[in-house]
Design a protein around this nucleic acid. Structure first.
Lengths: 205, 205
DNA sequence: ATGTATACGTACCGATCGGTAACATTGTCA
DNA sequence: TGACAATGTTACCGATCGGTACGTATACAT
């Protein structure tokens, strides 16, 4: 009875057999390690050790560490938009409330010890080279975030929707970063309030 | 930005009196490399090679690579507050104009290819461990930034000065990060405009 | 049972990591 | 001239880096 991890996965994963594939265990462990401690800081040896597999197994499922990092971010991307869409779905037709819900959630998440910010943002900082596989995923995620925020600013009827959308993006990125810089009681807890203030000022007149 | 800091070295270089200090060459090169490509990404071998010195020379001047990184950030800190104080000095007694000047400058600096954001912020992302020498310097710098922004929000007569100060910090950090994420035409160019909007909204009533 | 394909493990690779020991060379000042 | 401090030279350390050659175990269809 070696592993009790990933039991939650079996909920959607039916059949009696279906042994937990090495690739999934590797990606799960890599996700956690890469996010919490950084991609460059984690070696493949530690990943395979914590995943209970061996190195060749990793390289049969992923062509390289860089591609494993990109896979981690693709998974991150999926879950990111799930959270985003949840905030959107909670307030249909009310983009201002959607933003507020999303930012309130971010603000809350930053108020925990050892908060590590946004995996996408962190990866971009770790890899300045625009051609790095991980950075490609990260940049695409941020472009999409910008697109959505600007669209919501339009829907809110902002005077200068692109400016407001970008302002919201700046606040969000600032929350991610200052969340991990300041820890509890940091500026990130004020992100939703400031965003609402900014929205208010951008709709005026 | 660190491009002009080597000039004095080449011009005033030795012959006459002082021998070229290895420590300075090392720190100059490390500054440039650490900032542009990241601390973890740069090995000591590359630093000494580019500095034209040898490894023992590095370790006679700096106890470790981590301490060299901290020294780089201490230098960064000095230049950071120089720039900040320039913006302040340009508008005596007018904190709102000081902020605007500082943010306008940041917004401009982000609009260049291969912009790499804030060295302090980047170092904190690279080293989540709060006890890391580089991170210690980084966190102190950010605490000071927060302190100053909040004080300026008070001076501006904001309704909730701590909230405004923190909001400005979020915008600034967002500009640093999105500057390196989006490159030219990114959201960071709107930082000063959004800050002014936020200030306006925070003074109202 | 047997062949076959797939999954996994043992052991290893060369390169690079941060860091050091021991000694030679240089410039400056007295 | 002699002494000192700073730097250079060469060679090395153990650990870890990302990555792989190659043999072994298991599953399944025939």
């Amino acid at each position: 009875m070696p592993t009790d991890r990933n039991i939650d996965l079996t909920i959607s994963d039916d059949h009696a057999s279906a042994p937990p594939k090495a690739a999934k265990k590797i990606l799960d462990v890599a996700y956690d390690l890469f996010y919490r401690r950084g991609i460059r800081a984690i070696g493949v040896d530690e990943i395979v050790k914590r995943a209970g597999v061996t190195k060749p197994s990793l390289y049969r499922s992923f062509p390289s560490k860089d591609e494993l990092a990109a896979s981690y971010l693709r998974q991150y991307d999926l879950e990111y938009w799930e959270r985003f869409d949840e905030a959107v779905a909670a307030h249909p037709g009310d983009p201002r409330a959607q933003i507020k819900a999303f930012l309130t959630r971010i603000g809350k998440r930053t108020q925990v010890a050892d908060y590590r910010g946004c995996g996408m943002t962190n990866a971009a900082v770790e890899y300045p080279d625009h051609s790095h596989p991980a950075r490609v995923v990260s940049e695409a995620n941020k472009q999409e975030l910008r697109r959505r925020l600007r669209a919501m600013a339009v829907a809110m009827g902002a005077q200068a929707p692109d400016t407001l959308g970008d302002g919201l993006l700046l606040l969000i990125e600032g929350a991610y970063i200052s969340g991990q810089l300041f820890g509890l009681g940091g500026p990130a807890q004020a992100v939703a309030r400031n965003a609402d203030l900014l929205i208010e000022a951008s709709l005026k007149k």
